[in-house]
Amino acid sequence: MAVAIEVNDLYFYYERGKYVLKGINLTVRDGEMVAIMGNNGAGKTTLIKHFNGLLKPIRGSVKVKGRDTKGLSVAELARTVGLVFQNPDHQLFAETVEEELAFALRNFGYPEDIVKRRVEWALTLMDLRKYRHRSPLSLSGGERKRVAIASVLCYDPEIIIFDEPTIGQDYYQKQKIAQLLRMLSRQGKTVIVVTHDVEFVAENFERVIVMADGKIVADGNVREVLTDPEVISKSNLLPPQVTHCAWLLKDVGISPKLIKVSELVKEITRLFHEHKGI
C-alpha cells in the first residue's frame, strides 16, 4: 500500500537548543489505524502538528502522500490532513453548530449545496442533529468535543488525526468514538490517534507508537508493545489492567501477553476447565 505519512530523522525545538523532537522516524501507510502514546510532554502534539504543516522540521523531513511539507502551506495540507485539537475551546466560535461545521468547508471554497450536504452528514454521524441551532459554546464539554470532531470530519480529509479524543467522554460516547474510528478506517481513511488511554488502545488498535522524551521508544503491534515490561517502564506507561492481572497470575499458568478483557476471560475459563479435569 502507498505511504500516507513518512517522517525522516525529524528534529524540532520551540526554543533554540531545547529539542522537543529528537530524531523521529516513522511511516504510516494508507488506511492504517495508529495510536500514539507517551507521557505528558513527550512531544506527541508537537509531532502531529508536523503532519499538517503547522510546524516545519528544523532537521529531517516530513512527507505527506509523497509531498514534502516544507514547500506546502497549512491550507493546502489541511484538505488532505484533518487535525482535531485536544481542547475544543481553542476553535469553537460560530453562532450555531451548523455554522461551525460549515466553517472549514467554506474556507476550502466548496459550493453551498455541497456544504449543506456535508454538514448534514457530519451532524448525523456525530449525533448532533438536535443541537444544530444551538450555540456550540453553550454545549457541555463532551458535546463540544464532538462538535470539534464533526467540524473536521465534515470536509472528509483522507488522513485524520485526533489529539486525545476520549478526554471527558462518558463510557457510552467513548464506545461511539471507537466505533467511529473503526468506521473511518473501514472507509480506507488513515487514522492517527494520540491518547493516554491504554485500555482504549488495547481494545481498538493494531499498531501503537510509544514516545518518551522526544523519541520513539517502541513502534509495532499493540500486543507486543504493551506487554513488553521494558517499554512500559521506559515510557512511564501503565500496562492495561488486564495485562497487569495476567502478569500477577503468571504462576498459575496464564499467558503474560494478554491485553483484552475477553482474552483474560477465555484464559481463566480454559484453566478452570483444565483443573476441573484433574
Binding site: L54, S73, A75, Q91, N107, S151
Partner: peptide, 16 residues
C-alpha cells in the same frame, strides 16, 4: 500560548 493554539486550530480548518 492559548492564542497560538487557536491560530493553529483555525489554520488547520483552512483559515488563511
Amino acid at each position: 500560548r492559548d492564542f497560538q493554539t487557536i491560530i493553529d486550530a483555525q489554520r488547520s480548518r483552512g483559515l488563511e
